[in-house]
Amino acid sequence: MRDPHHRRRVGARTTKTPEWSTADIPDQAGRTFVVTGANSGLGLATARALAAAGAHVVLAVRDTTRGAAAAAGIPGSTEVRRLDLADLASVRAFAGAWDRPLDVLINNAGVMNLPESRTADGFEMQFGTNHLGHFALTNLLLPHVSDRVVTLSSGLHRARGTRIRFDNLALDGEYTPAAAYSQSKLANLLFTLELQRRLEDAGSPVRALAAHPGWAATELQGHDANGVRRALMLFGNRFLAQDADGGALPTLYAAVADLPGASYAGPGGRLELRGAPALVDRSAAASDSDVARRLWDVSEQLTAVGFPAALPRR
Score class of each variant (00 low, 15 high):
residue 1 M to G: 06
residue 3 D to Y: 03
residue 10 V to S: 11
residue 11 G to I: 03
residue 11 G to D: 11
residue 14 T to H: 06
residue 15 T to L: 00
residue 16 K to W: 14
residue 18 P to S: 09
residue 21 S to F: 11
residue 31 R to S: 11
residue 34 V to M: 13
residue 35 V to G: 05
residue 36 T to P: 07
residue 38 A to L: 15
residue 40 S to C: 08
residue 55 A to D: 11
residue 56 H to V: 04
residue 60 A to N: 02
residue 61 V to H: 03
residue 61 V to K: 08
residue 64 T to Y: 05
residue 66 R to E: 13
residue 71 A to Y: 02
residue 74 I to V: 10
residue 78 T to A: 04
residue 87 D to W: 07
residue 95 A to L: 02
residue 98 W to S: 11
residue 101 P to I: 13
residue 106 I to Q: 01
residue 113 N to W: 09
residue 114 L to C: 07
residue 121 D to M: 12
residue 123 F to K: 10
residue 125 M to E: 14
residue 129 T to S: 05
residue 138 T to Y: 06
residue 148 R to D: 15
residue 152 L to P: 01
residue 156 L to A: 03
residue 158 R to I: 07
residue 158 R to G: 03
residue 162 T to M: 04
residue 168 N to Y: 02
residue 170 A to R: 06
residue 172 D to T: 08
residue 173 G to N: 14
residue 191 F to W: 08
residue 191 F to V: 04
residue 193 L to R: 13
residue 198 R to H: 09
residue 199 L to V: 09
residue 205 P to R: 07
residue 211 A to D: 14
residue 212 H to M: 15
residue 216 A to K: 00
residue 218 T to G: 01
residue 222 G to A: 13
residue 223 H to F: 09
residue 224 D to S: 09
residue 228 V to Q: 06
residue 228 V to R: 00
residue 231 A to C: 13
residue 234 L to E: 11
residue 234 L to D: 02
residue 235 F to P: 05
residue 236 G to Y: 03
residue 236 G to M: 00
residue 243 D to F: 14
residue 244 A to P: 02
residue 245 D to Q: 09
residue 251 T to Q: 08
residue 253 Y to Q: 06
residue 256 V to S: 04
residue 267 P to T: 09
residue 268 G to E: 14
residue 268 G to I: 06
residue 269 G to I: 03
residue 271 L to W: 06
residue 271 L to H: 12
residue 272 E to A: 14
residue 276 A to I: 13
residue 280 V to W: 14
residue 287 S to W: 01
residue 303 T to K: 07
residue 309 A to L: 02
residue 314 R to Q: 14
